[in-house]
Deep mutational scan, measured.
Amino acid sequence: MDLSALRVEEVQNVINAMQKILECPICLELIKEPVSTKCDHIFCKFCMLKLLNQKKGPSQCPLCKNDITKRSLQESTRFSQLVEELLKIICAFQLDTGLEYANSYNFAKKENNSPEHLKDEVSIIQSMGYRNRAKRLLQSEPENPSLQETSLSVQLSNLGTVRTLRTKQRIQPQKTSVYIELGSDSSEDTVNKATYCSVGDQELLQITPQGTRDEISLDSAKKAACEFSETDVTNTEHHQPSNNDLNTTEKRAAERHPEKYQGSSVSNLHVEPCGTNTHASSLQHENSSLLLTKDRMNVEKAEFCNKSKQPGLARSQHNRWAGSKETCNDRRTPSTEKKVDLNADPLCERKEWNKQKLPCSENPRDTEDVPWITLNSSIQKVNEWFSRSDELLGSDDSHDGESESNAKVADVLDVLNEVDEYSGSSEKIDLLASDPHEALICKSERVHSKSVESNIEDKIFGKTYRKKASLPNLSHVTENLIIGAFVTEPQIIQERPLTNKLKRKRRPTSGL
């Protein structure tokens, strides 16, 4: 017993010596996670971090007073192994002897410093981030199933929210409404489509400006004509009531908005009720001829604005009016007729031209339509002016008669200019590109209106002035400009410049 007691005391002394060697000089306990400095002193990692955080910048070693920084600290694995072995020896000594260790306080702390507990403390002390800490805590505590279930439920809930957000973003663009038309193969669909197009076009005519009305009406008319041609002859009974509906809707729209509806009346003529396609083609032919005449008058307007600064050229074209007008009339009417003589009366030419125009518009179905009313009214106005011209010709002399006839021709041009508003800008460009020769010939008609105004002003003063002067240069210039014009009389060319000069002198006297 005595020997055993001596041996136990010796073992205890050895353990105490080893414990003092492996103590931390700051906390005076076994080193936890030993860290060595540049001066080869060993301290606990937790104690050194606490010391360095007390001051900004480098701190001093507690043993040798040298500078220490966080970067200079290094882990010493050898001392950590020695500490672990010492703890194992102490545990074995207690089991063999059955005696508690003399320094129970220190031993209890040593026992608490088992490797499992050290790992837990290291995970908390090290600044490795929240995710690494959570992982280490889960690994160190596998015995708690409640914690695992809560963490898994949190992760699953987070994943569910992310997935639901993604699915919502994908589903939202798919919620856009999609309209699908289910059509049938019955023959009544074509008639319904035609009526739908006509009503939609009328609404567009009321909303859209004048520049786009003609294009819309032309497209709708083409669509309706194609649909009529596709149907068989057996379905004509269905077409006639639908066309009557079209007429009623167009008349109502014309009564409500007459000014807006006139812009599309000329282009919509071939959508009118037709028994066969031949009647629609004839109407299209007549409309094309009318559009040609209207576009020519538009060309004359532009030329008149350009040549208004040259009064000499405008005056020299006075007698070329009849010849150029004959050529335009021959090209406007498709019928083959002989040219009228140069010395014939211009009023007779106008009456013949009106007689040619009237039969074209005397179809029984055309008179029933609303768009032809505008053309009939313009023709009636022309006839009224010609009836007035006959009365004026009986009273005035030959020279005054010529000037009045020219004035009436200008009035006719004004009437025809009203129809110019109905034609589109695209048709003007096509006419100029296809028929430049006709445009040059028809330019002379509009330029002549300037000389007509001068004659009217001469009649106000009650006299006409003449001068025997020749202007050969002007006649040559005008002959080169206009290709299809005829030779003019030299006496009238000489008379016109004198009248304008005298007018300039006598205007201030009349004002006084």
Score class of each variant (00 low, 15 high):
152 L>P: 06
108 A>H: 04
21 I>G: 07
114 S>T: 11
40 D>I: 02
142 P>Q: 10
108 A>R: 05
135 K>Q: 13
30 L>V: 05
158 N>E: 02
8 V>L: 15
191 V>W: 09
121 E>S: 10
80 S>F: 12
189 D>Y: 04
52 L>S: 09
108 A>C: 10
60 Q>L: 12
163 R>M: 02
139 Q>W: 07
165 L>H: 07
26 I>N: 09
106 N>K: 09
181 E>Y: 04
135 K>V: 11
40 D>Y: 01
115 P>T: 03
149 E>N: 02
112 N>G: 04
34 P>N: 05
112 N>T: 07
83 V>R: 09
77 T>H: 14
116 E>A: 07
99 L>T: 05
181 E>F: 13
50 K>V: 13
186 S>W: 14
45 K>R: 08
136 R>D: 13
167 T>Q: 11
3 L>T: 04
161 T>M: 05
66 N>S: 15
88 K>E: 07
185 D>W: 04
150 T>C: 14
299 V>H: 15
137 L>N: 04
113 N>V: 10
64 C>F: 00
26 I>Q: 01
39 C>T: 00
15 I>G: 00
10 E>Q: 03
104 S>K: 12
102 A>F: 03
25 P>M: 01
113 N>L: 02
166 R>I: 08
26 I>F: 07
75 E>T: 05
107 F>G: 06
101 Y>V: 10
87 L>G: 13
256 R>G: 03
190 T>L: 14
123 S>W: 07
82 L>G: 01
112 N>V: 07
167 T>S: 06
175 K>V: 07
2 D>E: 11
18 M>Q: 01
174 Q>W: 04
27 C>M: 01
157 S>L: 06
92 A>L: 01
147 L>C: 04
147 L>P: 12
179 Y>M: 14
28 L>H: 08
167 T>W: 10
185 D>R: 07
19 Q>K: 11
97 T>Q: 02
60 Q>K: 14
33 E>A: 09
44 C>V: 00
19 Q>I: 13
150 T>R: 11
188 E>D: 04
41 H>S: 01
2 D>L: 03
183 G>T: 08
157 S>V: 08
111 E>P: 13
18 M>G: 00
79 F>I: 10
143 E>T: 11
174 Q>C: 01
112 N>C: 04
